[in-house]
C-alpha cells in the first residue's frame, strides 16, 4: 500500500465520498470489464438489485460480498435474497443482466436535510416538531 500524500494527523475534516445516483440504472454488461465494474457498484450499493441469470432465474436482493478471481467463472457475488434469509453465491459468468431496482435507502438523508426540514417546520409555526423516519418498504 502506498504512503498517503496528506498526513492524516493534520486533516481537520475528512471529506466523505461523492456517491453516484445508481437507483434505476441498468448497466451494460458487454465486456468483462463492464461486468466487473457493474458488480463492484452493486456490492457498493445501499439497496437491493435485480440479477437476471443466463438460465432465466431472476434474483432480487442485496449484494453483500464479492469474491474476485482471475476470470468471470471464478469470480462471484454473494447475494441475500430479499424474500429469504439465505446466501446465494453466483458466478459473474452466470449473470446476464443487472438492474439497480431497489431504493437507495440512505440517499438524501443527510444531517443537513434533517436540519433543513426542522427549520422549515419551525418557520411554518409548527410546535413539538418531530421528524419521522421514512418507511423502508
Amino acid at each position: 500500500m502506498s504512503q498517503p500524500t496528506i498526513d492524516p494527523n493534520s486533516v481537520e475534516v475528512m471529506e466523505g465520498r461523492q456517491r453516484e445516483q445508481l437507483e434505476g440504472w441498468i448497466p451494460s454488461l458487454a465486456s468483462e470489464e463492464d461486468v466487473r465494474q457493474a458488480l463492484e457498484k452493486a456490492f457498493d450499493y445501499r439497496g437491493d438489485v435485480t440479477l437476471t441469470l443466463k438460465d432465466g432465474r431472476v434474483v432480487h436482493g442485496y449484494v453483500f460480498d464479492r469474491r474476485a478471481g482471475t476470470s468471470l467463472q471464478d469470480s462471484a457475488v454473494r447475494v441475500m435474497p430479499s424474500e429469504e434469509r439465505t446466501k446465494l453465491t453466483i458466478p459473474y459468468s452466470d449473470i446476464a443482466a443487472l438492474a439497480f431496482t431497489g431504493r437507495d435507502n440512505a440517499a438524501g438523508k443527510t444531517f443537513e436535510a434533517w436540519v433543513r426540514k426542522y427549520w422549515e417546520k419551525k418557520a411554518a409555526g409548527e410546535k413539538n416538531i418531530a421528524i419521522q423516519p421514512e418507511k423502508l418498504d
Binding site: S10, V11, E12, M14, E15, G16, K109, F111
Partner: peptide, 17 residues
C-alpha cells in the same frame, strides 16, 4: 468514522480536529 455508505458524508472529523 467516514462510513462510505452513511447518508451524511460531510461531517466526518479529521484527526487534527
Amino acid at each position: 468514522y467516514t462510513y462510505e455508505k452513511a447518508p451524511d458524508q460531510k461531517h466526518f472529523l479529521g484527526r487534527a480536529r
